[in-house]
Design a protein around this nucleic acid. Structure first.
Lengths: 159, 159
DNA sequence: TAAGATTGAATTCTCAATCTTA
DNA sequence: TAAGATTGAGAATTCAATCTTA
């Protein structure tokens, strides 16, 4: 397990198999959800994620930075994404009155319509690909696994 | 759970939470592994995955199509990726003697060196982000979860 | 000087079209 | 006509640089 000359703890066969399965699964789920969304609506998975978080906020409005943190996206990625979505009329931008450096991303009526229209098909696909395949216990375990990984990530970045 | 007017089986709160955690985890793991690789070697995660699969094959050589299937990548993505890697001297291409339509992707000595040099740091990062955070039972469960999802994916496409 | 955010250039990924051989 | 693979155009993502206000 540990290479005595290099000091590297290589992955066991089982870990390697799990890692490869994870990489494939992860790539395929993303690709399928993107395709499903793009063929049945005008949204990408990235569009959908942004709209979903905004929809969940009280007034469909969120500071760009907190949106970025919720999505765990780099700020430049989000900024480009918002520009593209703004061009398509899905979101708007507002300057922040209390801090003129900041800005809000705002859901437009068209953005609300778009996610409402896309949501049923998207949810069905998420179910089909993931939740319908797993037992409740597996779902619970997956959630705990993801949260454990995310906690570790937070520690190692924000301290 | 089921919306009686639309017939959509929405996600439960728990499922929704799991799904969001999964999306964040998945995005962050990919981003971190990419950054780690690119700062300590000249490879991206995509480069690494291609080199890893080729390294595992008997003679460092694989038909492009089977490589695509193992990675679960679209063939055009792989083709572009191989072109870029070929330009950098990491892989070569050979025409297939038995079927002139096909071609092989071949690991070059430079490709072998590159993955050998990058592997220890990459493995350490995979461990740090994922395996060291999880119990053996969680790792096992994650593997079964990924495999269950992948089986379903195979059925719904090739089946 | 740092924080919040945007921009531009370079890279990567996807879709559709194409090319060659079976 | 289909299978294996490549190509080009357009869209998305990243990194570094920039801009504005705190």
């Amino acid at each position: 397990m540990t290479d005595t000359t290099t000091g590297v703890r290589w992955l066991s066969d089982q870990e390697q198999a799990v890692w490869r399965s994870y990489l494939r699964m992860q790539g395929e789920i993303g690709a399928r959800l993107n395709r499903q969304l793009q063929t049945t609506s005008e949204l990408s998975l990235a569009d959908f994620e942004v709209l979903a978080v905004l929809s969940d906020s009280d007034d469909g409005r969120l500071r760009v930075l907190s949106l970025a943190r919720m999505l765990k996206w780099e700020k430049s990625r989000l900024s480009h994404q918002l520009s593209r979505m703004e061009r398509r009329g899905l979101v708007g931008r507002q300057t922040c009155p209390s801090d003129a450096r900041g800005s809000f991303a705002v859901l437009t009526p068209a953005g609300r319509d778009a996610i409402a229209a896309a949501a049923p098909g998207h949810v069905a696909e998420v179910r089909r690909l993931l939740f319908d395949v797993l037992t409740p216990a597996q779902v619970k375990a997956l959630g705990r696994t993801c949260d454990a990984v995310l906690d570790q990530l937070d520690e190692s970045s924000c301290g």
